[in-house]
Nucleic acid binder design. Structure first.
Lengths: 194, 194, 194, 194
DNA sequence: CATGAATGAGAGTTCATTCAT
DNA sequence: GATGAATGAACTCTCATTCAT
């Protein structure tokens, strides 16, 4: 398969992604994806043999693209607090998003397919986020903005809270107010108020 | 439906529960449940019209039974710390359990069926746990065991962390060590060390 | 599955047999059989999971029924020569039959599925025919009708010739005249002419 | 089609032959042959429109090449008995061969495609073998090695036995011992023992 | 000539659901 | 009430065949 076929794969992934965002993982059939791509039944099978294959590629694609939150569009003189606030705001936006989210599909996928940790893109994403948060916290401590005994432990704790909020949002539902309250709790545990 | 029919329903729920624990929610077919109950196909339809109906009843049944953690087998003279430790230990046991858990099925179910908050048994369960934790924390503060500015906020935070650990365990996997570290983090944030 | 289901199976086998006689083995699909039986797609799968299963049952059924050639409708005073002639005549009829024959399908089936000898109904049928022929020849020798050095060897040889005629008829074709000539050759090698 | 194209056809036939030897006739798809030839899907269709066309050409090719058994490597002074023995030995080798045989594919092909006798290469091959055997027997009779009333009839009979052995080997299976016994039976019916 | 991506028909198989008994 | 045979819709997957390049 040459370059062209790589383009087609990309095209399929884009179309399929919409389907997964709409229907989650388990409910999606090859037929759904065929229809979303507006290609033929057999045509899809030239590139992918199952929804699982497709979803794994989407997951890899997605987790590659992300984490740019921190690097992108951040002014030079931003304080650690600024960055933390921005990060949490992004997370809030993501977890309150009703549509256009792959989270549900990703969870469903991981329920059904226990990946070895090395190949689990969400594991990588989680660990990376912890690492970045840790550095951020340390820099905040240095600059006197934050108080924190162990940056790594705190970073991890924040991530678990965020995961908890995410799954809560998707299962029992959560109000924006509740999210705000929780994020504030995090911030208050960290930032030194004057 | 008479009493007899209520018994039969109970019987079906018990059998179906095993299936859901085994296979999650989405993969379970009426056929699976028929086979687990060793009743006839038509027989099952006399009581339940879909796996969804069945699972909803199981969920209600389960959330009714639970929360006994706190009330059961707790000596009179137990301190708030004792009770908290016991609670967290229970949670740890639950979230590390590989089999015999309905968590996955429940998540899958809630992904697929957005219930109104009032009817969502997991919402009730979450709120109850928060309430109980809150009281526990307050009593710990009163007894001088804990330090805490806002018992309700802290209780909620702990619950989100636990939810985060639960979903992490089921998706990207988590080691017992990591769980312990996190629970310790919670305790250290609360208990006044001498 | 009770008695009723056994009847249904019989019914399916009868219908399927016609299909196999028509189309051989490999070309027959479950759909063909469904249509021949005039039942539903899923209905067939209640009884048989593949054309292979069906054909094996047909083969067993068929080889059970046969070999009655010798026992049926044979007058008491029939000589060995009479019986031999009748047997060969039956064989001739069978091998010249254009339609209504399972031979082709059976061959195709055995090409594709190497059965262990014990389970191969054609093996049993062949061996039985050899045995019966052997006894017939011996009785002919005793009565002075036949000359033969070794009845078993001769019986076997005759069966191989018949097999050769059968496959020839089905592949390169054979005229009735050629069959007659060959059967005559067999008879002349056995019967003592006056 | 030029010479070059004829070469390509030859190449395709050689590759396809291996596939047919491996899988028989019916199971072989154009895709299989494309893969075996390592050419493009469309490329194959430039030369052949179906597996049937391909197999017919292979069959013609094969039956042209054969029958060299008698002509090849036969010493001048060989007796009729020597030659007969060699012939039967060759036949035995062929019919016991498990792999690398087109017999099965040829049978399957002829089951599915009733060729007019003139175009049936196996018919030609059979007739030629009868003719050669007939001459051999006559020469053996003349040299006093064989006893035989009608050489043509005997030749034909031998060929049917061999066909019978061949199909038996491919369907119900046959042991080398059984083949030997049968070949011995043929020889004893012909050769004058001293 | 040669390529191989694309198409769509068709086979296999599984289940939710019904219904005569 | 209870049964389980029967139905048919839906999905997966594979190929023969075509056609733009």
């Amino acid at each position: 398969m040459g370059e062209k076929s790589e383009q087609k794969k990309q095209f399929i992934l884009e179309c399929a992604k919409k389907v997964f965002m709409e229907k989650g993982y388990k409910d999606v059939t090859m037929k759904d994806i065929v229809e979303a791509c507006e290609i033929s039944r057999g045509g899809l099978y030239l590139y992918y043999g199952s929804t699982k294959e497709i979803f794994m590629d989407i997951l890899h694609m997605e987790t590659q693209e992300s984490d740019d939150v921190f690097s992108e569009s951040m002014p030079e003189e931003a304080t650690a607090t600024d960055i933390l606030m921005l990060f949490l705001k992004e997370q809030k936006k993501e977890l309150l998003r009703k549509k256009n989210s792959l989270i549900l599909a990703a969870y469903e996928f991981l329920f059904a397919n226990k990946l070895p940790k090395k190949e689990n893109p969400l594991k990588r994403q989680f660990d990376e986020a912890v690492y970045i948060l840790e550095n951020l916290i340390e820099s905040g401590v240095e600059s006197g903005e934050f108080y924190c005994e162990d940056a790594k432990d705190t970073a991890r704790n924040i991530m678990y809270v965020l995961e908890g909020l995410k799954i809560t949002a998707k299962t029992i539902g959560i109000s924006e107010e509740s999210v705000d309250k929780e994020l504030l709790y995090i911030i208050r545990g960290l930032v030194i108020e004057e």
